[in-house]
Amino acid sequence: MANTIAAAHEHEATASHGHDDHHVSLPQHRHHFETQEQQREAGSFGMWLFLLTEIMFFGGMFFAYLLYRNWYYDAFVTSSNQLSVPLGAVNTVILISSGFFMALAVWAAEVRKKKQLVRYLILTTIFGLAFLGVKTVEYKEKWEKHHIPGASFDVHEFINPAIDAKTGKAEQRPLAPDMAQKTQVFFFLYFAMTGMHALHMIIGLGLLGWLIYRAQRGDFTDGYVAPIENFGLYWHFVDIVWLFLFPLLYLINRHPLQ
């Protein structure tokens, strides 16, 4: 190495190489990504593209809801008032709490606190299960009242509404028999939308079990946060769907007699 310029550059090259090695420090860092940051962003980008397809999927159902609500508004108001607002509101709070603990789980993974990460993931799961529990109570009531669309659907209550014992007046405005049949459209959309939402939660709870197992093993508290972060995006998306379902299904018109 008589050439001083080459010698100087060789030194620079090894220094740069050493720098690279420092960045490729984690086994999770794939070699086709320049940096961990790039890998992380590619992951979030992919997750968001998936969530956009989910927006379109749920969006189709929201659009069907919009048209049929417009068409059969009276049937939608009457059937909406069959849903329990307290149960719906409690479930909203439960789901927001679940999302809050999921957000804290992402934080715990970022600051590499394994115990807290596992604890927050378990709390996310418990609140998710509580949501599905309340949903089961609601579905069971619909089953008992024959409010599930199909051959055994009962329109009796919508044509001859119950009489309020205090005022002696009907609790709801009675519907004509043809409009009363359209309450099935509301309940069909109710079960389709909350059912798909619940299916997303069941899938999410399955993934949470797997994440808790891996978090316990210490997989996500060593600088590799991507699975927790991307699952968090999914879980929050499912929250957002419910934030729209609650007012649109439960709170259509709280003044049916005015």
């Binding site: 999302g99 809050f100 999921m102 957000a103 968090g232 995006l233 929050h236 998306f237 929250d239 957002i240 934030l243 729209f244 609650f246 007012p247 649109l248 709170l251 259509i252 018109n253 709280r254």
Partner: peptide
């Protein structure tokens, strides 16, 4: 009523997207 309900839901959704997500 539905406009107010949707406005609140959209606000909540934006908060979730900006901070939780």
């Amino acid at each position: 009523n539905p406009i107010v309900a949707l406005a609140i839901a959209c606000t909540k959704a934006v908060i979730v997207i900006l901070f939780f997500m």
